[in-house]
C-alpha cells in the first residue's frame, strides 16, 4: 500500500495580529492543523498494510516542519518550493512531485488554516480522474476497496470506492502521534527530495486586508448576580434580549 500524504507549511494563524490596521504576517511557521491528521493516517496505513508513506508539501520550504512530519513516520518528503500556488497549481505540483510513485491513496486534510478552500483534494481527484472521499472521519481498507465514513453536517454517510483514491480527512480521524527522541533523530537521515515545478496560477491574490469586527469589549465586574443583572440591562439596551 503506497500512501501519499499532503501537508502544508503555513503561518501560525493563532499568532497573526492586526498592527496599525495591517496584518502582521511576521509569525512562526507551522504545519497546518489537520494536515498532521493526514500524515498520521498515512503512517498508520503503512504500519498496518506495509508499503510506503510519502509526504508531499507545496509552497513554503521549512526544514523543521518537514523533519517533524518525517519523525511522525513518513519515509520521505517531496518538496515543491514556490512563492505562490493557487489550489489548481498546488494539485498539479503534487501530481508532478509524485508521478513516479504507484500511489494507492492520496490523503489530505479537509482544509488548511491559511486558504481554507478545501479544494486541493477535489482538484487532484478531478485531474487524475480518481474517486474522491471527502470529510472522512474513519476509514478502512478491504482488499482493493476503501470504505469511509464521512459527515457533511446534516447527514453522515458510509462510502466505498476502488483504490486508487483521494481522501480528505477531518480532525476526528485520529490523534497525531508525538514522535519519540529516537524518531526525531532518525528523521534527519530520511530523504527530502526537491522537485522543480512552476505553473501560471489561475487565481491571483490582489490584496490581503485585516478582517476586523470592532467589539465593545466591556468587562463586567462585580459578583455574579450583579454581573448578570448588568449584562441583562446591556443586552436589553442593545435590543437583542
Amino acid at each position: 500500500m503506497n500512501v501519499v500524504a499532503g501537508f502544508k507549511v503555513v503561518l501560525d494563524d493563532t499568532l497573526i495580529k492586526v498592527v496599525n490596521g495591517q496584518l502582521d504576517f511576521n509569525v512562526p511557521l507551522k504545519v497546518s492543523n489537520y494536515d498532521k491528521n493526514a500524515v498520521e493516517e498515512a503512517v498508520e496505513l503503512k504500519e498496518k498494510y506495509g508499503g510506503t508513506a510519502i509526504g508531499v508539501t507545496v509552497g513554503i520550504d521549512d526544514r523543521k516542519s518537514i523533519k517533524d512530519m518525517l519523525a511522525m513516520g513518513l519515509d520521505e518528503v517531496r518538496v515543491v518550493k514556490g512563492n505562490y500556488f493557487d489550489a489548481l497549481s498546488t494539485a498539479e505540483a503534487i501530481i508532478e512531485a509524485t508521478k513516479d510513485v504507484k500511489t494507492d491513496l492520496y490523503i489530505f486534510a479537509e482544509q488548511t488554516t491559511d486558504g481554507n478552500t478545501s479544494s486541493v483534494p477535489a482538484m487532484l481527484a478531478s485531474l487524475l480522474d480518481l474517486p474522491l472521499l471527502s470529510y472522512v472521519k474513519s476509514l478502512r481498507i478491504d482488499g482493493r476497496k476503501v470504505i469511509a465514513e464521512r459527515s457533511l453536517g446534516l447527514n453522515s454517510e458510509t462510502l466505498e470506492a476502488e483504490l486508487p483514491a483521494v481522501i480528505s480527512v477531518t480532525g476526528e480521524i485520529n490523534k497525531p502521534r508525538v514522535p519519540t527522541v529516537r524518531q526525531v533523530l532518525e528523521a534527519s537521515k530520511k530523504p527530502i527530495k526537491y522537485i522543480e515545478f512552476s505553473s501560471q496560477p489561475k487565481v491571483k491574490i490582489v490584496e490581503l486586508n485585516p478582517y476586523v469586527v470592532n467589539r465593545k469589549r466591556v468587562i463586567i465586574e462585580g459578583n455574579m448576580k450583579e454581573a448578570v443583572d448588568k449584562l441583562i440591562t446591556y443586552l436589553k439596551e442593545d435590543g437583542v434580549l
Binding site: L88, A91, M123, S126, S134, L152
Partner: peptide, 23 residues
C-alpha cells in the same frame, strides 16, 4: 456554500482546469 456544493465546485474547476474562488 454547503460542503457538498463546494466539493462539486472544486471538482468542476479541476476538470475544466480553471480558477476557483470559494466563499
Amino acid at each position: 456554500n454547503s460542503k457538498k456544493d463546494k466539493i462539486i465546485a472544486a471538482q468542476v474547476a479541476g476538470k475544466r482546469k480553471i480558477g476557483y474562488i470559494p466563499d
